[in-house]
């Protein structure tokens, strides 16, 4: 099963105090950022700091991602510096085609690390969205494609709104491309970190659209995102019953089972199995099925 990536928190790569707190924030992943949150004159310092933070801090269960700069600027220098430290994943900004991903793949493979380093292309332009399927399938190291809402909005000449109508189609296309390529779809940040209700509503909406998680711009957002992406006791109980009913039905040679008066079929069973896998991953209590 793919890694759990409900939340990814951006941490500026030139801010040691924030990076040091990274393992404590409770996010599924930290993105040590070398790109937009670091000013040009700080790039080299951030590269040095991020490399050494990965080497010396114990991030425990937290996945360590590094967002490099675009390959058209100093992305390759970033890769050369951080890859030897062994991050878990590289976030590739401004991804627009297969070639960019393959350049990163080559750098990873040439670094001869004993561990697997995943590639997470960040798609944030009209062209990128139209090529999303190609990008998602460009390398076996791609485990998810991610959406960058702010840059995308600017690229298509739209205005960013709280409701996000302007990015609805882009998001939807990204989810479809990801799922077609068999990788995760991860969403953009919700920029107004004082608007907890807005974040909650938006996250509910993207979960319903099929996203597997989203990025956070402020640590206070992590808990709300997890709240929505973590199965509730009732969902887990229902999933247990669905799986049990399907097993009984299969034992009887029947393809159809009924739970709480509703027919269950293959997609419902697969969704239930996914919920149980997440619950197991998070060490949540899983009840016995009801008879």
């Amino acid at each position: 099963m793919a890694r759990l990536r409900r939340s990814r928190i951006y941490l500026p790569g030139n801010r040691p105090r924030m990076i040091q707190k990274g393992p404590l924030l409770g996010a599924d992943a930290v993105i040590l950022d070398l790109e937009d949150s670091v000013s040009p004159e700080q790039k080299d310092a951030a590269r040095f700091l991020v490399t050494n933070a990965i080497k010396s801090l114990n991030f425990g269960e937290t996945e360590v991602m590094v967002r490099i700069n675009p390959l058209s600027t100093c992305g390759l220098e970033d890769l050369a510096a951080v890859l030897p430290a062994g991050p878990d994943a590289i976030v590739v900004p401004k991804s627009e085609n297969r070639e960019g991903v393959q350049t990163v793949e080559k750098a990873i493979l040439q670094s001869n690390l004993s561990k697997r380093v995943a590639i997470l292309p960040l798609i944030e332009s009209a062209k990128g969205i139209l090529n999303a399927y190609e990008i998602a399938g460009a390398s076996t190291l791609v485990e998810a494609i991610t959406f960058g809402g702010e840059d995308f909005t600017q690229d298509i000449g739209a205005t960013r709104t709280r409701e996000g109508r302007e990015i609805f189609l882009g998001r939807s296309m990204l989810v479809i491309a990801a799922k077609a390529a068999g990788v995760q779809a991860l969403d953009t940040v919700f920029s107004d970190f004082n608007d907890e209700e807005g974040l909650r509503n938006d996250t509910l909406a993207i979960k319903q659209m099929g996203f597997d998680g989203r990025a956070a711009i402020h640590p206070s957002q992590i808990e709300i995102i997890h709240d929505i992406y973590t199965p509730t006791d009732a969902e887990i109980r229902h999933a247990v019953n669905v799986i049990r009913a399907s097993e009984i039905a299969r034992g009887k040679g029947s393809g159809v089972a009924v739970v709480n008066g509703k027919m269950i079929d293959k997609p419902i069973i697969e969704r239930a199995e996914k919920i149980i896998r997440i619950a197991e991953r998070l060490d949540l209590p899983i009840p016995e099925p009801e008879e």
Partner: peptide, 8 residues
Amino acid sequence: TRDTVNLN
């Protein structure tokens, strides 16, 4: 405080 670490 909004400091997540302190809140934790």
